[in-house]
Computed example of a mutant assay.
Amino acid sequence: MLAAGTAGAAGPTAASPCTQPVYLTFDTGHMGVAELVAEVLQRQQVKATFFLANERTLTGGWSLDEHWAPWWRARAAEGHAFGSHTWDHHSWLADRPERGDGSFDTRPSMGPRAGQRSSFTPAAYCTELRRPAERFQAITGQAMLPLFRAPGGKTSPALLAAGRACGLAHVGWAPAGFLGDELPSERYPNVQLLQRALHSIRSGDILVAHLGIWSRRDPWAPAVLEPLIVGLKARGLCFATLREHPQYGRAPATAALPQAR
């Protein structure tokens, strides 16, 4: 385990062909470990995919406000990939088939309606999904990938259909790729999460973590992120963005997407 945590351990170099890829992804969160994540990714020469929502941060701002704009510009310049996580972090609650319009209910954890039940038509959900893409393009000059991740990975037939109508594919994660940074640290200590991930992750898996979780007392990123990267490299795995994924990397960027119907 100590060997796996050594930052300088040998592994595939950035120039090596990535023949056994895993896809490391991050959802926004409170941004408390964002600088650390960026340092680790740069040091390990790993490219990741970030899913962006406008979430409240530890400093009292928002993850897509002007304070964080330079951070996102730097990540875009480094070649990472980006997708939507909805603007106000809307978690799916229920489809509403009785309405006959493809609508569904959600509950946002952010924004003016935080904690209140909301209802979306497909067109309205498309607008919600596009807001992070529009903000990201305004900050960086780059377009997001035509991908989104529903908060918590909670989806339904109506929600997925709304995303498809907007030109967006939903991205979940592999069972082994759930890295556990949102679990309570009293029951799931970092050493246990690291050992499980190193044992179970396989080539092709999509991994998910966050740029800060409010509920976890012992932060995951300082203890687990770099040892995990180094350990997976030692197993012969390499890292790629969803831009290179065989399923998700084929569509054009969001700037060229059609309007929702």
Rank of each mutant, 00 (worst) to 15 (best):
L194W: 03
L194I: 08
L194N: 07
L194D: 06
Q195M: 05
Q195V: 09
A197V: 09
A197N: 11
A197W: 03
A197L: 12
A197I: 08
L198G: 10
L198Y: 00
L198D: 04
H199P: 00
H199W: 02
H199G: 07
H199Y: 02
S200E: 15
S200Q: 15
S200A: 15
S200K: 13
I201K: 03
I201A: 09
I201N: 05
R202N: 07
R202D: 04
R202E: 11
R202M: 02
G204S: 03
D205I: 13
D205S: 13
D205P: 03
D205N: 15
D205R: 03
I206N: 14
I206W: 03
I206S: 13
L207V: 09
L207F: 02
L207C: 10
L207K: 09
V208P: 07
V208Q: 13
V208R: 13
V208M: 14
A209P: 00
A209L: 04
A209W: 01
A209G: 09
A209C: 06
H210K: 05
H210D: 09
L211A: 08
L211Y: 00
G212D: 06
G212P: 01
I213S: 08
W214K: 08
W214N: 06
W214M: 04
S215E: 11
S215G: 07
S215A: 11
S215Y: 02
R216V: 03
R216Y: 01
R216S: 11
R216W: 00
R217E: 14
R217C: 07
D218F: 04
D218Q: 09
D218H: 07
P219V: 08
P219C: 12
P219E: 12
W220A: 07
W220Y: 12
W220S: 07
A221F: 08
A221T: 14
A221D: 14
A221C: 10
P222V: 10
A223G: 04
A223Y: 01
A223E: 13
A223V: 02
V224P: 03
V224T: 06
L225G: 10
L225T: 06
L225N: 08
L225P: 03
E226I: 01
E226L: 02
P227G: 10
P227R: 05
L228K: 07
L228W: 01
L228P: 05
L228F: 04
L228T: 05
